[in-house]
Structure formats: structure tokens, C-alpha cells
């Protein structure tokens, strides 16, 4: 399915881009994390979270066509 990926902070740096529209054979956040970890090796070493349509998503979250999926490193606000 088509997903609109967004990368931030050190993950954007590791991915070499801030966003990408991709076609991926994944149906859940857990599956997406597996694929992303293979593509972006940095993700093996750091804590990261996935947000789907601007809300933090658990591994069980089901992905839908054209979702906005953000890959977020640790927060550092304040």
C-alpha cells in the first residue's frame, strides 16, 4: 500500500531524506518497523516511535492506504 513516510531528527539524517512516498507490503506498524529497521540500520541502535496520522501508534496499529507515517526519534523539547 502507499504510505507517506516522514523522518525527523537523527532518523532523517540516517535516512538521507525527510519524507518519501513509498509502496510497501506491510499491514501493521510492527511489520513496518521490521522493514524500516532493515532499510535504516541506525534504527537498530536507537529508541524510536511511529506516529500514524499524527498520533503515536502501537505495534498492533493497522495501516491504511495513504496513511501519514512518521518515524520519530527520542523527544527533546523544553
Amino acid at each position: 500500500m502507499t504510505l507517506r513516510l516522514k523522518y525527523f531528527g537523527m532518523i532523517a539524517e540516517a535516512a538521507g531524506t525527510q519524507e518519501a512516498t513509498v509502496d510497501m507490503a506491510v499491514s501493521s506498524v510492527e511489520e513496518l518497523k521490521c522493514v524500516l529497521t532493515q532499510d535504516i540500520r541506525k534504527l537498530v541502535d536507537i529508541n524510536f516511535q511511529i506516529a500514524v496520522n499524527q498520533s503515536i501508534a502501537q505495534d498492533s496499529c493497522v495501516l491504511n492506504e495513504n496513511d501519514e507515517v512518521a518515524v520519530l526519534p527520542g523527544f527533546a523539547g523544553g
Partner: peptide, 17 residues
């Protein structure tokens, strides 16, 4: 989701958490 990098005097940096 705010991200930050600490920039040192020599312009090198590290990501903060």
C-alpha cells in the same frame, strides 16, 4: 515531537534526548 541537536563550539553536534 520536538527534536534537538546540541551544537558544540567547534560546530560538531550530537542529537539530544
Amino acid at each position: 515531537p520536538v527534536f534537538a541537536r546540541e551544537i558544540f563550539e567547534d560546530q560538531s553536534y550530537q542529537w539530544k534526548e
